[in-house]
Design a protein around this nucleic acid. Structure first.
Lengths: 347, 347
DNA sequence: CCCGTGGGTGTTATCGCTAACACTAACTCC
DNA sequence: GGAGTTAGTGTTAGCGATAACACCCACGGG
């Protein structure tokens, strides 16, 4: 039935041993030239309705699927974007990834991921190089680290790279949530409740988000002219929050704590519970992120909500702009929101 | 410096307006034919050491990067695998994804993801088709749903697809954690503590994991000849666990609950705390998954640990086998482990 | 001394697609 | 009525890589 004027025998077999049909095969079945088929598929150039119908029928009959490699070769466009993601189950990065994927898919792009187990200048550079070998058209780096920022300082000017939440100084567009503002809101909320000061459990030093939250907290305390307690440092994990809580429990004058994220706040709550410290009666606690579970902690956690889906969407927007020749120094800021729950409730 | 015997002017510009160098460009600089360059890059065929050195120097000088589309066109291999992932922050699927990505990267494959917001027969089929248009060499479906299984029933025999945790009946290799066994362990653990029976908060009906956990729970109760309470159904979220807890709190004779996952267990703990029910003193509670936070719940949660990274790794292995012509009916089972904590501790 | 045998290299033919242009027929316009 | 247009289609020439084969040369063996 199908004549194959040009394509040879069953070369380049799939598992089943049959060649995928090509444009030429479809053209043969439809009785037109391969160009007409191409025009039908891409909607370029005019085609008579009945011809189009014949072509579509032939496509259907053969189960034709365009060869993306051939198309990419001639157009120079792969329709693929790369995402460098931190290999973690942290709520933020994972959600951001989905936001990006959604926006990209709507715009007709596919997403290839390259994960990085521990962030570092060279590992991120490796991941970027890895993606460039995949011929992605642009890259999004979700790695809000100081080191990530440094890795991006060397970002080539002729290739579109954008960063999420990091690399302030890097010559790439950056989108981030206003961490300082979020920390300020949480801290002010606690101060407004009448506490003398607010303790802080910070995230890892090499995370920009951790730095910014700490900065926002510190600034707020200073602006209010209250003493700044020593910073306790965690690593985002509940475990580290728990350890911080154990050490804080010995502290007298403790009445308000702002944890760098919700997981650490959870560990903190646990440690306080074990030490017989009641939240919010003895100490008030706030977190950051608003993970879906935060409303069900014991007690429900006051926290700062970040709209990660929005972050993902805007990240894609920034990359699209950059690919279109946009500014390397574009910045976008998403404003977080304070969610008040029982952990800072009335006593 | 570089002569371009064949390649024309600066066509197909990148953002900066310069053509990417091609094999021919490298060949020109190194003073050899493009085939020699190809041989150096791929290690096919013999090349004199000094020639190789010249070629490598030229590659370095031009910043040459092989064109993957051209290579894919001629070899018929794209070196890319597709993953259909559920768009959720559920701990399991996200971790599995990283396990897959790691194993795939080690084997030289890139991963393209296509996310699905709500699982369903057609949405999964769409995602699969979407990936096939990207010319992936194989597809992994992480969507442990009944509907996913049905979507895969139509999986073509000539294209490698594997499923994670779903589609028992589908003609594709499946890897899953032994949910029934995990549920049995948790239930038996609770029964062994002397409870008359164990209540269960199940996950959504269309999740195979939910079904299997429920089945394992029910079987165990029956084997021990104890009464089977009515099943309360949740949707994996803490909120649904909380609601289940509110309704359970009214129940008398309540002394042990096995929640279908850790998030629901968290909601349950919250509802019990509000109702003045003490865990484990009044009621003992177990969960499933062992999310990193489970050890810091109030109280720390007894749960069933699944090794998702291992699942990811073995999933890739199964796909690799299938791409190599392996069996469509391969199965792999990962055994979960019971982690005992205070929520089922001594009273 | 000639032939076979590799090492080392080049030439040519695709892969499946789109860009660019050529061509025909019908139709508009003055 | 001849010169543009425009719709509709075909032909040809690449894109940048690998496959297949051709070729030359240095060797070793009969």
């Amino acid at each position: 039935m199908a004549e194959r004027p040009r394509s040879g025998g069953p070369l380049k077999a799939t598992a089943a041993g049959t060649r995928q049909p090509s444009l030429t095969d479809v053209a043969g079945v439809a009785g037109v030239s391969h160009m007409t088929v191409s025009r039908v598929i891409n909607g370029t150039g005019p085609v008579r309705p009945e011809t189009r119908a014949r072509v579509l029928a032939a496509i259907e009959e053969l189960g034709y699927r365009p060869n993306s490699a051939a198309r990419a070769l001639v157009t120079g466009r792969t329709g693929t974007l790369g995402v460098v993601a931190l290999e973690s189950n942290l709520y933020g990065p994972a959600s951001t990834l989905y936001g990006i994927e959604n926006a990209a898919r709507e715009a007709g792009y596919a997403i290839t991921i390259s994960s990085v187990s521990r962030p570092g200048r060279s590992s991120i550079a490796d991941a970027v190089e890895n993606l460039r070998r995949q011929a992605v058209e642009g890259i999004i780096v979700i790695a809000p680290h100081v080191t990530a920022g440094r890795a991006l300082e060397a970002a080539p000017a002729d290739f579109p790279v954008v960063a999420v939440g990091g690399g302030e100084a890097a010559p790439v567009p950056v989108i981030s949530v206003d961490q300082r503002d979020g920390a300020r809101r949480a801290t002010e909320h606690l101060l407004a409740l009448g506490h003398r000061t607010v303790w802080h459990i910070a995230g890892p030093e090499d995370w920009l988000e951790a730095r910014d939250r700490e900065l926002g907290w510190r600034e707020t305390l200073e602006r209010h002219g209250v003493g700044v307690p020593r910073v306790i440092r965690g690593d985002w994990s509940s475990r580290s929050g728990y350890e911080a809580g154990r050490s804080l429990a010995k502290e007298k004058d403790l009445d308000a704590v702002f944890a760098g994220n919700d997981q650490m706040a959870l560990g903190l709550l646990r440690a306080f519970a074990e030490a017989g410290i009641s939240v919010p009666r003895d100490v008030r606690v706030a977190g950051f992120d608003d993970v879906p579970e935060a409303a069900y902690f014991t007690p429900p956690l006051t926290t700062v909500r970040q709209d990660f889906i929005e972050v993902g969407r805007r990240t894609f927007g920034l990359l699209a702009g950059r690919m279109d020749g946009g500014d390397r120094h574009a910045r976008a800021l998403v404003v977080p929101e304070l969610i008040v729950r029982e952990s800072t409730g009335p006593r």
